[in-house]
Write a protein that binds this DNA or RNA. Sequence first.
DNA 1: TTTTTTGTTGATTGACGAGTCAATAAACTT
DNA 2: AAGTTTATTGACTCGTCAATCAACAAAAAA
Lengths: 197, 197
Amino acid sequence: MPKLGMEPIRKAALVNATIVEIGRSGSLDVTVGQIARRAGMSTALAHHYFGSKEALFLAAMRHVLSLYGAEVRGALGASVGPAARLNAILRASFSPANFRADVVGAWLNFYVLAQTVPDARRLLTIYQRRLRSNLMDCLRPLAGRRAGAVADGLGALIDGVYLREALAPKPSDGVAAVQIVLAYLAAELGQGAVHAG
Amino acid sequence: MPKLGMEPIRKAALVNATIVEIGRSGSLDVTVGQIARRAGMSTALAHHYFGSKEALFLAAMRHVLSLYGAEVRGALGASVGPAARLNAILRASFSPANFRADVVGAWLNFYVLAQTVPDARRLLTIYQRRLRSNLMDCLRPLAGRRAGAVADGLGALIDGVYLREALAPKPSDGVAAVQIVLAYLAAELGQGAVHAG
DNA sequence: TTTTTTGTTGATTGACGAGTCAATAAACTT
DNA sequence: AAGTTTATTGACTCGTCAATCAACAAAAAA
């Protein structure tokens, strides 16, 4: 049975299974056994490829963040002008791929992981910085000196909406979520453009 | 050594120790032993008084939420008019007592707990509902039919700011936190509506 | 005084889970 | 064909931890 070149396939399956299991159970207390079973292999194999549970968790986190990053980049590539680019970032943040129940659940737990595991914290910090920088690029022309404050508000708001989605009894489609963020933006820009400075 | 009337004292000490330990370690993976040691007693005694780790966690959660509720009620009692009352809620939300590093860390982990433990979810839902209702009372006169949307945004934003504080390398004093939320409010309501006491 | 209630803990149990190991098998290399 | 590398797993070790138990201590009640 053993075919060659299994490593990347197995690793991808494990990373996926990790996200699903963490999201489904809503906790980091998932056993390597659960993850491996969902990925269709033995626990020993999971350890063989990742060495430790922590490494597997970090890989899963990296994957979620890189998917998100890719989606943002894609949306940005097709958008011209600060307002359109801002919209693109927000649309990507609440796209069906990123706003899936298990992904949001995993996201929340990665925040928890970041409290204990320095590497996890590093990853989250990078994500936050990149988001802020992307937002700032769009906001500077739109909000002037208030760009920084608006970017901070937007970042926190996005995280907050994710947090509430994680707790929501039934998954939403993300439309209501974007709506909240867009309302904030409209308010800030409508007023900020006038009162800038 | 056994004095009488220890039960409430021991329970309070355990609840406090639970919050501190969860906040400090940034995780629900705290042993009853750690908590009991910090509270100055044996693990057996902790089990004697609470029966189970889960019950202890729930008691700690109830305590955090009730402290917060009390602070909000106190601040509301001293405030007249929607704008002032809105300010009171926000001030209470980021008061030194509630915005302490370990409390915020515990808060985040209670969100995680709520994913698995129905009772924990119930508690959080009650908190969210009460907050929303309080916000709505203030917002209806100020934001009219948009009150609902603004309340949802505010709720999410507060949680988001908490979330970011949990991840922050160094604890902030809460002033910057309120600032973000106030900026949101100002934007949504239009300037001047919010600068009461 | 005896009994009961309340407080308290060290020691133990029982379960569970991360990580390791030895062994097996199929493919590639020489 | 012999040897090497990659894939794969069942069984095992070792530690940890929630929960229980048996016992002891002191105050209150009888």
